[in-house]
């Protein structure tokens, strides 16, 4: 079960605004999905190691060699609000 308060808390963590209707709907839908998911608890997982990656690779690192950066104009080309050679955003405190 996930109630309205929890939905709002999680939405805040995810920086997601929800209308009242959406909160209502998500609380119902997420509850049924989470209930389904929770049947995992039938399994005894105490001695099982988690799998984060299925790749049996040794991992990969990069040599510390510079590569070309993007042109300044290209970097800013898609910015919603470019200003002063950077990406403008509203301040945290309005």
């Amino acid at each position: 079960m996930i109630d309205r308060t929890q939905v709002l808390h999680v939405a805040r963590l995810a920086r997601l605004q929800l209308t009242d209707d959406e909160v209502e709907r998500m609380s119902t839908e997420l509850s049924s999905i989470l209930d389904h998911i929770e049947t995992i608890s039938e399994l005894d997982l105490s001695d099982v190691a988690p799998t984060a990656h299925v790749v049996a690779s040794e991992g990969a690192l990069r040599a510390d060699a510079p590569r070309a950066s993007l042109d300044h104009d290209v970097a800013l080309a898609q910015a919603p609000d470019p200003a002063d050679d950077g990406f403008r955003v509203p301040s945290p405190q309005a």
Partner: peptide, 21 residues
């Protein structure tokens, strides 16, 4: 912030939450 759509807002948090909504 860097690309894509943005909802205008006076403060950062609202900009984030409204954009994503």
């Amino acid at each position: 912030v860097r690309y894509g759509a943005r909802a205008e807002a006076d403060d950062l948090i609202t900009m984030y939450t409204k954009t994503r909504h």
